[in-house]
Design a protein around this nucleic acid. Structure first.
Length: 727
RNA sequence: GCGCGCUUAGCUCAGUUGGUAGAGCAGCGCUUUUACACAGCGAAGGUCGGGGGUUCGAAUCCCUCAGCGCGCACCA
């Protein structure tokens, strides 16, 4: 017996060694394959391929437990498919996460007393790159610790040379097709981050504030934001509101307002909720999405009140230059003095929009920005719009979303989708490939010839480059072998919280740029929470370092705890007890192997197992395992890993160990007394163990590989997944 | 307001097309027998949120009520 087996299983002294073995074998890459897999006679899946791209972790930090959930699932998928004889590739990479990284490095510099603007764009970007490279290295080493069989030769970064080329190519094509346009639109301005952000990057928060009611000529109007009201010269009410039936649409009224008399125009529109407040409101088109829409509808004037720093403009007259937060009470005071304040509700709960990354309070502004038109018909794509290109494959089931109910959420989002604002006023990111010279505009993959051209200062929304990920990692826009072989990818495995951010954008980009779906299956996972069900967060200080868990309990145990009992789309709770339980299971497998190997010394399995004469009990056990294999193979194909893992656990422990091993003990003892032949019992033990090691390998790769290595020269990783007939 | 999900053992959660309910932890009892004592084995524990319906049969399908959670939109 191998000496290693004499002690309990020790993951810490095993895992790194095994990982090195795998990596050096070259089998993570699709080009390197075992002989049986290269042969159409021995491989039922000959010629089939299977690819996954890793959702690239943000290069803003280290991996947390949430990532290990994804890593465990995807490695299980890819190892299973590899053992099925398919040519598999799982592509690693990291995401530059433009705005998140930019704001993180900005904060780091601030701690050093350095202001971004003082060191300039170039120096700042040097610092960012340095930081990102550090994070990337950490992330890569953590993925190795998890046992992830990623093809490192294909590692990509959303902001490396090749991906930058892909981004410029994509941008130009969309620009030429009129899908990307520059225009003055109302956008979400983050005064803190000094950049625009997309609708999806908003986080709404409930805040208690004051709700004021003012006299506005013959009306009473309500507002939570008096500081925006200077320019208000349109007063809106519902056409069916009997209280105001004496006023007509377009009627002009002179009235006294904050800084003197104004001429107000009556607008009648059904957008008004008669039940809310007094049923009358004034509008501020420059600083409200809804008011903007109304102003567009009736071609009303729009006036800017607040500047990008959150200060009042000259329209505010005596309040000019004041911060809006400081001005608010003073404006109310003035209105009160003028006798225009009717009432103040102190307990008003307002939902305010904040920026996801900086926490800044969003101020809608009309600004010149770049947008992706989601409604424009595209002749090259059957006259469909991007919206339709996103809807179609999911509707027609070319893309399957697991769990199924998320497709309704997806449809709901697309139906309400507005044009996607893609320009950002930050330095870190893909620079917009557009140049200006006087009145001329040039969009191209390379800078235009000639002097005097100035490139657009803005960078792109990080999701623009992530949207290309399934094919930019495979070499697009070059028509590479990888692209031909591995796109569309088979499955993508992100958390449901990035269904819109990422999954939808990948479908958009792939459908439009290459005319195919990016993946066949979207397996959404949930959020991993702590044992109490709280989100992991810095403020709660409930973070758990995956490396510590691996060090103490082993990667296999952590992986199992991430898979068993966590259904698709369901949030999981991290409980160290669960990890401990699967660490015991690792040891159980180890000890069972010890027993089997101990009792099968000088015994080799017959080439033709069918010659074996099992007794009734053993025959039953043999059939039971075959049935289990058939069952779990189907379930693996249906991405039901959480069920398979549990079944294997249960079979190994309560059938193989409790029944088969125990029964064989009796037989072996008896045979020693009576000198009978127990080869069939030994054969059953060895066959069952081998089969179970193979079946467990995608879930618990380290312990299974280590045991396998004691009696086999091949790598378990490249063994053939057991089939019912071949056991 | 629109939509989605959840409610199963003391706790945290699984349960694939409807066919006598499962795991981990906790608790209880037993055990050093040729794998395994930081272990193993065994027993116990559930009217599957309430009510109604379809069915030979429902945790599973339909209706309804209640509680919890989430997403989207609006909030002048």
């Amino acid at each position: 017996m191998d000496d290693r087996l004499k002690k309990p299983y020790d993951p810490q002294n095993t895992e790194d060694r095994i990982y090195k073995l795998w990596e050096e074998s070259g089998f993570f890459a699709p080009e390197v394959r075992p002989e049986w897999a290269k042969n159409s006679k021995t491989n039922a899946n000959f010629g089939k391929r299977f690819s996954i791209v890793l959702p690239p972790p943000n290069a803003t930090g280290v991996l947390h437990l949430g990532h290990t959930l994804e890593d465990s699932m995807q490695d299980t998928m890819i190892r299973y498919q590899r053992m099925q004889g398919k040519q598999t590739v799982w592509i690693p990479g990291t995401d530059h996460a433009a705005i998140a990284t930019d704001s993180k490095v900005t904060k780091m510099l601030e701690k050093e007393g350095i202001k971004k603007k003082d060191i300039g764009r170039e120096k700042f970007l040097e610092r960012v790159n340095e930081f990102v490279e550090g994070s990337r290295k950490t992330i890569v080493s953590q993925l190795r610790k998890m046992g992830a069989s990623l093809d490192w030769s294909r590692e990509a970064f959303t902001f490396d040379e090749k991906r930058n080329f892909a981004v410029r190519t994509a941008f130009k094509q969309m620009y030429d097709d009129g899908l990307i346009y520059r225009g003055h639109r109302i956008v979400n301005w983050d005064p803190k981050g000094q950049t625009v952000i997309s609708d999806d990057e908003l986080v709404y928060e409930e805040r208690k504030g004051k709700f004021y009611t003012f006299k506005y000529g013959p009306f009473e109007i309500g507002t939570a934001r008096p500081e925006t009201k200077f320019g208000d010269k349109y007063v809106v009410m519902h056409p069916d509101d009997k209280r105001y039936q004496d006023y007509t649409h377009g009627q002009k009224l002179s009235l006294e307002w904050i800084n003197g008399p104004v001429e107000a125009t009556v607008i009648k529109d059904e957008m008004i909720d008669m039940e809310f407040g007094t049923g009358v409101m004034t509008i501020t088109p420059w600083h409200s999405h809804e008011d903007f829409a109304l102003a567009e509808k009736y071609k009303l004037d729009k006036e800017q009140i607040i500047d990008p720093y959150g200060k009042l403009l000259p329209v505010a007259q005596e309040f000019v230059g004041m911060k809006i937060t400081d001005a608010r009470e003073k404006i109310v005071e003035k209105l009160k003095d003028k006798g225009l304040l009717v009432s103040v509700d102190e307990n008003y709960v307002n939902r305010v929009a904040t920026a996801e990354r900086t926490g800044g309070l969003i101020e809608p502004q009309i600004m010149l920005q770049w947008f992706v038109d989601v409604n424009k018909k595209i002749p090259a794509r059957g006259n469909k719009s991007l919206k339709e290109l996103m809807l179609e494959p999911v509707r027609e089931k070319k893309i399957k979303i697991i769990p199924d109910h998320f497709k309704r959420v997806y449809f709901n989002w697309i139906e309400n989708l507005r044009d996607w604002c893609i320009s950002r006023q930050i330095w870190y990111g893909h620079r917009i490939p557009v140049w200006y010279k006087d009145e001329e505009i040039y969009c191209g993959i390379k800078a235009p010839e000639g002097s005097g051209w100035v490139q657009d200062e803005d960078t792109l929304d990080t999701w623009f480059s992530s949207g290309l990920w399934t094919f930019s990692t495979l070499g697009w826009p070059e028509n590479t072998e990888d692209l031909k072989n591995f796109h569309p990818t088979n499955v993508i495995n992100p958390g449901y919280e990035i269904l819109f951010f990422w999954v939808a954008r990948m479908i958009l980009m792939s459908q439009y740029l290459i005319g195919t779906i990016p993946f066949e299956t979207v397996y959404l996972h949930g959020i991993l929470r702590d044992a109490k069900g709280q989100k992991f967060s810095k403020s709660l200080n409930n973070g758990v370092d995956p490396l510590e868990v691996i060090k103490e309990h082993g990667a296999d145990a952590l992986r199992m705890s991430m898979i068993v009992g966590i259904g698709p789309g369901a949030d999981g709770k991290f409980d160290i007890q669960k990890v401990k339980a699967y660490s015991k299971f690792s040891n159980k497998i180890w000890n069972a192997a010890r027993f089997v190997y101990d009792n099968t010394q000088d015994f080799t399995l017959s080439e033709n197992p069918k010659e074996l004469k099992y007794d009734e009990d053993d025959k039953k056990s043999d059939e039971e395992l075959r049935a289990l294999i058939a069952e779990i193979t189907n379930e693996m194909d249906e991405y039901k890993f959480y069920i398979v893992a549990e079944k294997l656990y249960h079979y190994f422990w309560h059938t193989f160990a409790d029944i088969i091993i125990e029964r064989s003990k009796k037989k072996i003892i008896e045979s020693e007394k009576n000198n009978t032949n127990v080869d069939s019992a030994r054969a059953l033990l060895l066959t069952q163990l081998n089969t179970l090691l193979k079946a467990l390998h995608p879930f618990m790769p380290f312990v299974t590989e280590e045991i396998w290595s004691m009696h086999n020269r091949t790598l378990l990783m490249t063994e053939k997944w057991p089939s019912q007939e071949e056991i």
